[in-house]
Protein backbone atom coordinates (compact mmCIF):
# COMPACT_ATOMS: atom_id res chain seq x y z
CA UNK A 1 0.00 0.00 0.00
CA UNK A 2 1.29 3.43 -0.90
CA UNK A 3 2.05 5.67 2.09
CA UNK A 4 2.66 9.35 2.79
CA UNK A 5 6.43 9.01 2.47
CA UNK A 6 6.00 7.45 -0.98
CA UNK A 7 3.84 10.40 -2.03
CA UNK A 8 6.51 12.86 -0.83
CA UNK A 9 9.18 10.90 -2.72
CA UNK A 10 7.17 10.83 -5.96
CA UNK A 11 6.44 14.55 -5.66
CA UNK A 12 10.15 15.28 -5.25
CA UNK A 13 10.98 13.20 -8.34
CA UNK A 14 8.40 15.18 -10.31
CA UNK A 15 9.74 18.53 -9.02
CA UNK A 16 6.52 19.22 -7.16
CA UNK A 17 5.76 20.20 -3.63
CA UNK A 18 2.51 18.96 -2.11
CA UNK A 19 1.09 20.95 0.81
CA UNK A 20 1.13 19.03 4.09
CA UNK A 21 -2.70 19.21 4.23
CA UNK A 22 -3.00 17.51 0.82
CA UNK A 23 -0.53 14.67 1.45
CA UNK A 24 -3.14 12.54 3.23
CA UNK A 25 -5.74 13.13 0.54
CA UNK A 26 -3.28 12.28 -2.26
CA UNK A 27 -2.17 9.13 -0.42
CA UNK A 28 -5.75 7.95 -0.10
CA UNK A 29 -6.62 8.77 -3.73
CA UNK A 30 -3.47 7.10 -5.08
CA UNK A 31 -4.32 4.07 -2.95
CA UNK A 32 -7.78 3.84 -4.49
CA UNK A 33 -6.52 4.27 -8.05
CA UNK A 34 -3.71 1.71 -7.66
CA UNK A 35 -6.11 -0.65 -5.93
CA UNK A 36 -8.46 -0.47 -8.91
CA UNK A 37 -5.51 -1.21 -11.22
CA UNK A 38 -4.93 -4.51 -9.41
CA UNK A 39 -7.44 -5.96 -11.89
CA UNK A 40 -4.57 -6.27 -14.39
CA UNK A 41 -2.22 -8.05 -11.97
CA UNK A 42 -3.38 -11.54 -12.83
CA UNK A 43 -3.52 -11.12 -16.58
CA UNK A 44 -1.14 -13.47 -18.36
CA UNK A 45 0.75 -11.17 -20.69
CA UNK A 46 3.92 -13.25 -20.94
CA UNK A 47 3.59 -13.98 -24.68
CA UNK A 48 2.42 -10.51 -25.54
CA UNK A 49 4.65 -7.89 -27.10
CA UNK A 50 4.56 -4.36 -25.73
CA UNK A 51 2.67 -2.01 -28.07
CA UNK A 52 5.02 0.94 -27.75
CA UNK A 53 3.99 2.09 -31.24
CA UNK A 54 0.35 1.30 -31.68
CA UNK A 55 0.25 2.28 -35.36
CA UNK A 56 3.47 0.35 -36.06
CA UNK A 57 5.03 3.49 -37.45
CA UNK A 58 8.74 3.24 -38.26
CA UNK A 59 11.33 5.97 -38.04
CA UNK A 60 10.45 8.97 -40.13
CA UNK A 61 13.44 10.68 -41.66
CA UNK A 62 13.82 13.96 -43.44
CA UNK A 63 16.64 15.49 -45.38
CA UNK A 64 19.27 17.14 -43.22
CA UNK A 65 18.74 20.58 -44.68
CA UNK A 66 18.60 23.94 -42.95
CA UNK A 67 15.21 25.59 -43.10
CA UNK A 68 13.80 28.85 -41.92
CA UNK A 69 13.33 28.83 -38.17
CA UNK A 70 12.10 31.07 -35.36
CA UNK A 71 14.15 34.20 -34.90
CA UNK A 72 15.77 34.83 -31.56
CA UNK A 73 13.40 37.58 -30.50
CA UNK A 74 10.28 35.50 -31.19
CA UNK A 75 11.73 32.48 -29.44
CA UNK A 76 12.32 34.56 -26.32
CA UNK A 77 9.03 36.44 -26.47
CA UNK A 78 7.28 34.27 -23.87
CA UNK A 79 10.24 33.88 -21.52
CA UNK A 80 9.68 35.12 -17.94
CA UNK A 81 13.19 36.61 -18.05
CA UNK A 82 15.71 36.98 -20.85
CA UNK A 83 18.99 38.79 -21.32
CA UNK A 84 21.24 39.40 -24.31
CA UNK A 85 19.30 37.03 -26.53
CA UNK A 86 19.24 34.18 -24.02
CA UNK A 87 16.90 32.76 -21.38
CA UNK A 88 17.83 34.08 -17.96
CA UNK A 89 17.89 31.64 -15.04
CA UNK A 90 19.06 31.94 -11.42
CA UNK A 91 22.79 31.58 -10.91
CA UNK A 92 23.84 27.90 -10.85
CA UNK A 93 27.49 28.15 -9.81
Amino acid sequence: MINEDDIRKIAALAMLEIEQDDIGKFTQQFGEILDYMKEIDNLDLSGQEAAFHITKLNNVFREDKTKESLDNETALSNAPESMEGAFKVPRVI
Binding site: D6, I7, I10, A11, L13, A14, L16, F26, F30, I33, M37, I40, L43, L45, Q48, E49, A50, A51, F52, I54
Partner: peptide, 25 residues
Protein backbone atom coordinates in the same frame (compact mmCIF):
# COMPACT_ATOMS: atom_id res chain seq x y z
CA UNK B 1 2.86 12.03 -10.01
CA UNK B 2 0.94 8.94 -11.10
CA UNK B 3 3.02 8.90 -14.27
CA UNK B 4 6.25 9.43 -12.35
CA UNK B 5 5.32 6.54 -10.07
CA UNK B 6 4.50 4.00 -12.82
CA UNK B 7 7.72 4.86 -14.66
CA UNK B 8 9.93 4.81 -11.59
CA UNK B 9 12.50 2.11 -11.09
CA UNK B 10 10.99 -0.97 -9.46
CA UNK B 11 7.50 -0.23 -10.78
CA UNK B 12 8.16 0.09 -14.51
CA UNK B 13 7.67 -3.62 -15.25
CA UNK B 14 4.66 -3.98 -12.98
CA UNK B 15 2.82 -1.03 -14.44
CA UNK B 16 4.12 0.63 -17.58
CA UNK B 17 5.47 -2.40 -19.45
CA UNK B 18 2.41 -4.41 -18.50
CA UNK B 19 0.12 -1.62 -19.66
CA UNK B 20 1.81 -1.48 -23.05
CA UNK B 21 1.34 -5.23 -23.46
CA UNK B 22 -2.29 -4.94 -22.45
CA UNK B 23 -2.74 -2.15 -24.96
CA UNK B 24 -1.60 -4.58 -27.65
CA UNK B 25 -4.20 -7.11 -26.48
Amino acid sequence: MLGTYVLSSGYYDAYYLKAQKLRGL
